[in-house]
């Protein structure tokens, strides 16, 4: 019996278009423990989003397997909730109803109606969005939408929370606020999180381990860097923390010296 919580075992993924086969991921191996926060970083096009989609079950592995608590993952489900890059809230539903859709689906049989209501409000409160419960996604800011996206994912009480570059489209200040919010949630709920990012500071600030991917095609895991900075972490104190500076430098070296993005370098 395997002890690891999530095990990505020799996963390859290739897409075929007609006769042309493109290998996106090659022999990816990774194990993640319960409660761990892992950042996956790499240049754009290296297949990190593909890896996340594989874990989410939105795309199928070509060879290899992904095991969650000893069971193979081959279809999407609420035990692996995703916070999508562009929030993916349903624009015709209010903030409350967006979360409610998830809660009704996941807890429709196990929780009573008032319990579900409390649970929705509790999750909106976790991301400080109770004030906008009746607003539609079109009426709130990008940062707020992403908060609601996180609330919706958390409300499914997932075994693993998958974040696909969730703050990529936000301005730096909003992003910092949301990073703090995610750290706080992680500290409070102790849930397992995997976050795709292309932001070095974000990766180091949030993660217990940083998984660095080589450039595609046939991207693989180049290096895994443990970040041993104690929590709770404070971004201001961290700026001069030797471990932080060292980790940051290591990631930068990996990305810009050993695995320079070819297109960008030209």
């Amino acid at each position: 019996m395997d002890q690891s919580y999530l095990k990505i075992d020799r996963v390859c993924k290739s897409f075929s278009k007609g006769a042309k086969v493109t290998e996106v991921l090659s022999d990816v191996r990774l194990t993640i423990d319960k409660g761990e926060f892992v950042s996956i970083i790499g240049h754009s096009g290296c297949g990190k989003s593909t890896l996340l989609n594989l874990i989410a079950g939105l795309t199928e592995v070509t060879t290899g397997a992904i095991m969650l608590e000893g069971r193979e993952v081959n279809a999407p489900g609420p035990d692996r909730a995703v916070v999508f890059q562009n929030h993916s809230l349903l624009p015709w539903l209010s903030v409350y109803d967006n979360v409610k859709l998830a809660v009704t689906k996941v807890f429709g049989a196990t929780k009573t109606k008032p319990e579900r209501h409390d649970w929705i409000m509790q999750n909106l409160d976790l991301v400080q969005m109770t004030h906008a419960a009746d607003k539609r996604p079109g009426e709130i800011s990008g940062g707020m939408r992403q908060r609601v996206g996180i609330a919706r994912a958390l409300a499914m009480e997932p075994k693993i929370l998958l974040l696909d570059e969730p703050f990529g489209a936000l301005d730096a200040l909003t992003r910092a606020h949301l990073q703090d919010a995610v750290m706080e949630i992680h500290a409070r709920l102790k849930n397992t999180m995997i976050m795709i990012t292309h932001d070095v500071d974000e990766a180091v600030l949030l993660a217990d381990r940083i998984v660095m991917m080589t450039n595609g095609p046939a991207a693989r895991i180049g290096e895994v860097l443990p970040v041993a900075i104690p929590r709770p972490r404070d971004r201001i104190q961290l700026a001069s923390h030797p471990d932080y500076v060292r980790a940051r430098e290591a990631v930068l070296r990996f990305l810009y010296e050993r695995h320079r993005f070819v297109e960008a370098a030209e």
Partner: peptide, 12 residues
Amino acid sequence: QDYRNVAAVLRL
């Protein structure tokens, strides 16, 4: 596709 993904994760 985003909406389809949401539906897939929720197993609608």
